[in-house]
Nucleic acid binder design. Structure first.
Lengths: 259, 259
DNA sequence: CGCAATGTTGATAACAATCAAGCTCGGTGG
DNA sequence: CCACCGAGCTTGATTGTTATCAACATTGCG
């Protein structure tokens, strides 16, 4: 379960206790970026005091999404970007014949909806992998503020560009790697991202099924299961259901090769 | 689907000025965006008269890149985005052990270098597939101008976001499609992009080798060759070396399926 | 012309998909 | 409380697609 993940850096995360600033406190249980434990990794991470407050007024709306339900669906009008506050999401493309393809998993501090800017309409379903919470960032207001705050514009461009880099990594993986390399790269990627959030790098919980992992990596669920078993047999990892412990990250890295 | 770039109304492309097929005959007749035949599809396509002139002053520098040489290399500092004026490029990631992975092909009117914004350093080699010409757009100046010109900021975000969509299409392809589907999707993508530039949709010239196509699609060059031969046998296309004619685009589309 | 780069085609092998059976764990209801 | 159920997971047997190895054809260029 989630609780078994070890928190290395003491960053308390208590949504219900965090106070918000300003006037709308009475009407909405809301949270300010200035007190959010994710402020070091989230979109407004470059903003100075005054600008951060202004950003807070844009991103006041929080939204809870129950496990399995969608934050938005393909075809929805694009109104806002979403920053994951807690929980996790998958982006799912659905074809006309019902086939699904997962294009990404999204952890806290990561932005959802970027690919919808261009068409002005979402092209994917964003489905919560567990009960989750997001900050809604209305895009029109964000663009307006970015005009006035150079560092925000820059940060926004950086975040989007970073998304492209991440996708290129996955393309690499899908195009040229064996099943073992894909799994190794996947585990290392999760490890790095959890670490960035202040969790242990070598021990974490998969929030997605084998089937979802396989879908994402371009493999079948059986292959995912087999490779994980093989990794365990070879002492690279210890896997118990969704609990993963990386026992030999170096060997995993060697498997992937150095890009 | 696959390679959606900038979404704008297509403006007729004048083959007499910039020739895509056959020998490349680059033109110097116009250096200003305001007179460029790509202005309908390129980055500044939303700009009004005065802003377009200002943009012209940012993007004055043209650069020629000979076939096979690099516009920039992995590790280079990120200074500018590049708009392809004529010719074509590939983006190549190179691993420490020399393995290469092509993440994209870039036709006229498309932007190069977007994925370097976040790290501030290029992560790929941009290699010209034929003698080519690009417009250099210094990024610092572009960001500055985007602060003052809302439509430019918006367009910039759109273009980058569009790149993400394009990459997702490729991920889909790499993750779930057979060799036949990949080739079909690839040909249709090229067809659409040439059409956008004002060329015939059903007849074009591949600027890249079978090996490069295979690398991009996650296939070997032999498989690419075999599938093209099969397509020809089945009357879907006519292929003679690099010349391609789509004889039955509908059948190709059916092969890919509808995403 | 001759050579190197590119492309085609065939034979074989490897890897992952598919098909199939059984297991584990958590939840539910008798 | 326990038996049952089903989703998720593991493992085995077999098949199929594509990679690999290999030989040869074609093109373009110095």
């Amino acid at each position: 379960m989630l609780q078994s993940a070890i928190r290395v850096q003491p960053i308390p995360f208590k949504p219900s206790l965090v106070r918000m600033n300003g006037q709308s406190a009475a009407t909405r249980s809301s949270v300010a970026c200035s007190t959010c434990c994710l402020q070091g990794v989230c979109l407004p991470c470059d903003l100075a005091g005054g600008d951060l407050e202004r950003f807070d007024q844009i991103a006041t709306q929080k939204r809870r999404v129950a496990r399995g339900s969608a934050l938005y669906r393909s075809g929805d009008a694009f109104e806002a970007l979403y920053a994951v506050r807690s929980g996790g999401f998958k982006s799912v493309g659905v074809s006309q014949n019902g086939d699904e393809k997962i294009t990404g998993f999204h952890l806290p501090g990561e932005l959802l909806g970027l690919e919808a800017i261009s068409p002005g309409r979402h092209g994917y379903n964003a489905v919560a992998l567990e009960d989750s919470e997001v900050c809604s960032i209305p895009f029109a207001a964000l663009e307006r503020m970015a005009l006035a705050v150079p560092s925000l514009q820059h940060q926004l461009l950086r975040v989007i560009s970073g998304d492209i880099s991440r996708d290129h990594g996955l393309m690499l993986l899908l195009g040229r790697m064996t099943a073992e390399q894909r799994l190794a790269a996947f585990l290392l990627s999760l490890s790095r991202r959890y670490e960035r959030l202040g969790f242990a790098a070598s021990r974490f919980v998969l929030r997605m099924t084998r089937e979802e992992i396989g879908n994402y990596l371009g493999l079948t669920l059986e292959t995912v299961s087999r490779v994980l078993s093989r990794f365990q047999r070879e002492g690279l990892v210890h896997v118990q259901q969704r609990d993963v412990e990386l026992k030999n990250a170096t060997a995993l890295r060697d498997l992937v090769g150095h890009w």
